[in-house]
């Protein structure tokens, strides 16, 4: 409901040509990220590149939560789809990221539709349970189809699109560019007719059906878009870390994506994505010595943010009541 109201407000703002403070903030952040490679280097740059990949993953979960009100704890499946698409395209055909990225997107869309179709009419918990099964099934599929996926050891990704530029810089800027394009596309979706239709199917299912937007259609299309986004995230992840292996796609990595999405309050903007991605990438890196504390910290963050959001909405409700006696 509030999502829809916000979307229409945005639309009006955009048409009125008013400057949006939030857009300015995002632009400033982008400038900072663009200039960063001139200041820092090495490990931090690599970490940030991974952060962009995780940001895409967190955004994909946020998209699902925002547009259909569902949670998925199986998005590592779609991330793996993209990552392995890049690695396999390189191994089999010698193609680099720019050519394998569209393949990753298509695979993500196809995977999302195939998976969401059976559960299109069911309430949220069933979707969550089947995504859990998806996440748990993934490692055994990857490990036991060794010929294609390289089994336990996984595959390497070494090709870069531009041979003459330094690899690190290329990885950083291409990942950033993909993330920015994804965020612009999300903003476009939010204001578009299709985006409004999807939001309406969530907020007022019966009204939406009267307009010809069935719930099943909305569910499947949101899931397909989200899966495609996750798959792009996976492609960037493979490109950034130059290796893919089943270890990075477990049930826990799926749940971590959800943590990243919740921590960024399920928002779909560039800064939110970066926050989510940074939480997933920087926390384990800087707490490497306290490895076992990471799940506890993530779990605590998940519970704390959920409770705080609930508290905030309570307070807002109270204030609204006070305003109109």
């Amino acid at each position: 409901m509030s999502d829809m109201a916000q979307a229409t407000k945005r639309l009006r703002l955009a048409r009125g040509g008013l400057l949006d403070l939030r857009n300015l903030g995002a632009a400033a952040l982008l400038c900072l990220l663009l200039a960063l490679p001139f200041v820092v280097g090495g490990f931090l740059l690599y970490t940030l590149t991974l952060c962009f990949a995780n940001a895409l993953g967190a955004l994909s979960v946020s998209l699902l939560v925002r547009y259909s009100g569902e949670v998925s704890i199986g998005h590592s499946f779609f991330v793996a789809l993209g990552a392995y698409a890049v690695a396999i395209m390189e191994k089999q055909f010698g193609l680099s990221l720019l050519l394998s990225l569209p393949v990753a997107v298509l695979l993500g869309i196809a995977g999302g539709i195939i998976f969401a179709y059976p559960s299109r009419r069911l309430s949220g918990i069933y979707l969550a349970v089947s995504t859990m099964a998806l996440a748990l099934a993934l490692p055994e599929i990857l490990v036991h189809s060794e010929k294609v996926t390289g089994g336990f050891e996984g595959l390497y990704v070494t090709l870069v699109p531009l041979p003459s530029v330094a690899k690190e810089l290329q990885r950083y800027y291409i990942a950033l560019a993909i993330l920015v394009v994804a965020c612009l596309a999300l903003a476009q979706l939010r204001g578009s007719r299709q985006g409004l239709a999807l939001l309406m199917a969530r907020a007022h299912p019966s009204a939406a059906e009267a307009f010809g937007i069935t719930r099943g259609w909305a569910r499947v299309s949101v899931f397909a878009i989200s899966a495609a986004l996750a798959s792009v995230g996976g492609a960037v992840m493979a490109f950034a870390s130059s290796t893919v292996s089943p270890n990075s796609f477990t049930l826990w990595s799926s749940i971590f994506l959800l943590v990243g999405s919740v921590v960024s309050l399920n928002r779909l903007t560039l800064p939110a994505g970066i926050i989510g991605g940074a939480f997933l990438t920087l926390v384990p890196n800087y707490l490497a010595s306290a490895g076992d504390w990471v799940p506890i910290l993530y779990g605590a963050a998940l519970v704390a943010v959920t409770l705080c959001v609930n508290c905030a909405s309570d307070i807002r409700l109270l204030l609204a009541r006070r305003e109109r006696p």
């Binding site: 076992d292 799940p295 779990g299 963050a301 998940l302 519970v303 959920t306």
Partner: peptide, 21 residues
């Protein structure tokens, strides 16, 4: 229901961390 389900995932993560710890 959605928020409470997410919160149980958080609790699950904490318990998992506790086991590992």
């Amino acid at each position: 229901d959605l928020a409470s389900t997410i919160a149980t995932l958080g609790i699950g993560l904490m318990l998992q961390g506790l086991i590992q710890l």
